[in-house]
Amino acid sequence: MSDKQTIKHRGAKGEFHFAYDDLHQPADDGVDMKIHQELIVFIIWAISFVALSVALPNFFTEGNLISLLRSVSVLGILAIGMAIVVIGRGIDLAMVATMAVSVAGAIVLLQQGYSIPVALLAGFVFAVLVGTVSGILIAYVEIPALFATLAMGLFIYGVGRFGFFNQDIVLIPPEGGSLSWLGAGRVFGIPVSILFLLLFAGLVALFLRYARIGRFIHAIGDNPSTARITGLPVRKLYVLSYILSSTIAYCAGIITATGVGSMNTRIVNSTMLYDVILVVVIGGISLSGGKGGVRNVLVGTLLIGTLLNAMTIMDIQYTVQNVIKSMILLIAIIVDSLLNPRDEQTAQQGDI
């Protein structure tokens, strides 16, 4: 294996060769992460799973495992979307708000008599619009991603409550009952939501590994200045990454809503966003950008999803759960900062 890998790109000034460390390229999905960290996280999950199965009578049961798989699937899909922007040195704090408002808006259209395709398309367009605006604010207006997406999330949630729905829980009408298969169906006993997680994981892994645009996102996260000098369309790639994040969040929201027959918009004020970030960081995707991929998301999802499920079974108080999760997130961020020190440019971008 060579120490450097070269990306060829033909820009306005000719063909450029962008080289970056091949050590940041694991074999399966082009991610920038040390393999042993992924293995350690997976081993911790395996040990935890066995221990919880022995210690908790209600853990290793069919009903709980199905519930665990469904909750893990939505968390994993959201984390995959978040991973795309984090790899490119960004962060999307509007993700959960985008999910809730776009899906709730689509459900309202169903309630008003619009057909399923029209309602779903409208929600999709709204999600794409949110991602586009966020990307433009970050790439062209040069607002740090932390503040741009935080403001965008608050804005669209306020607009949604004022203009689209006035209740916390938006129920899917009987006309949309055919959609329930997306969130609650099974194929050969396997929840469809898990199959969607595997589908998104496979598509994004192929995108980051083999698509030029996906490799460019790794490149701008690894070194934005070099990527810009070599002629890569850095600003457009930033916008694209946020569009992908919002689109994936919308899909996760559809799976969530169809699984329970409604969209609970109070999820915007829950800790789900922090759970997603926790999965991304604990899995090994560096907040300094350019490192990590789908494999990291999957192992992080397994560990955090199992932990959340176990705490629920043990009836641990919600506040205590938040304290535990916040401690894990803080430790993960500290470890990430030690393993992947932030450079001057990252700090200038808001030090995500």
Rank of each mutant, 00 (worst) to 15 (best):
A106P: 01
L287A: 08
I277W: 02
V141T: 06
S134Y: 03
V96K: 02
G214Q: 06
N264G: 09
V279M: 01
G253W: 00
G283W: 00
M1T: 05
N296G: 15
T226W: 08
R212C: 10
R295F: 11
A205M: 08
A127S: 09
P174N: 13
F196W: 14
N223I: 12
I324R: 08
A51M: 13
F49C: 13
I43Q: 01
M314W: 15
N264Y: 07
Y20D: 09
T226E: 08
L203W: 11
A27V: 13
G185Q: 08
I316F: 10
A139V: 05
F60Y: 10
V85Y: 07
G30T: 10
P117K: 10
I213G: 03
Y318T: 15
L197S: 02
V125Q: 03
A122C: 12
P341G: 04
G350P: 03
T98Y: 01
R161V: 13
M263V: 01
H36P: 00
D28Q: 12
V108P: 00
T319K: 12
I87F: 03
I87V: 11
A139R: 02
I267G: 13
T319A: 12
I143S: 00
H9K: 02
A12W: 09
G163W: 14
A310G: 14
G305V: 06
R70M: 06
R295D: 01
G202V: 10
L56E: 13
L179A: 04
R235G: 05
T346E: 14
V268H: 01
P191H: 10
I77C: 05
I324N: 10
F188I: 13
L287C: 06
F164K: 06
Y157M: 09
D3L: 15
V170N: 04
D168G: 09
N58M: 12
G231P: 01
L278E: 02
Q111D: 08
I116F: 04
L244C: 04
I7V: 12
K291H: 12
A79C: 01
P173D: 05
T226Y: 11
S337H: 11
V133R: 07
A79I: 02
F188Q: 12
S262H: 11
S326M: 07
F60I: 09
S48E: 07
W45H: 03
G131P: 01
P26W: 11
M95T: 07
A205N: 13
R295M: 14
G261T: 04
G289W: 07
S326P: 02
I248A: 10
I35F: 09
V86I: 14
L240M: 09
T271N: 15
A97F: 02
V159P: 01
L179V: 05
R295C: 10
P341Q: 06
T230Q: 14
R228I: 01
I43A: 14
H218T: 14
V276F: 05
A252G: 15
L308R: 15
M152Y: 03
L330K: 00
A148H: 02
D22A: 14
A83D: 09
G305C: 05
D168E: 13
L110Q: 04
K13F: 11
V280W: 07
I138S: 01
L137F: 12
Q345N: 14
G131W: 00
A12P: 10
I328M: 07
M314P: 09
A97P: 05
F18V: 08
T265H: 02
L129F: 13
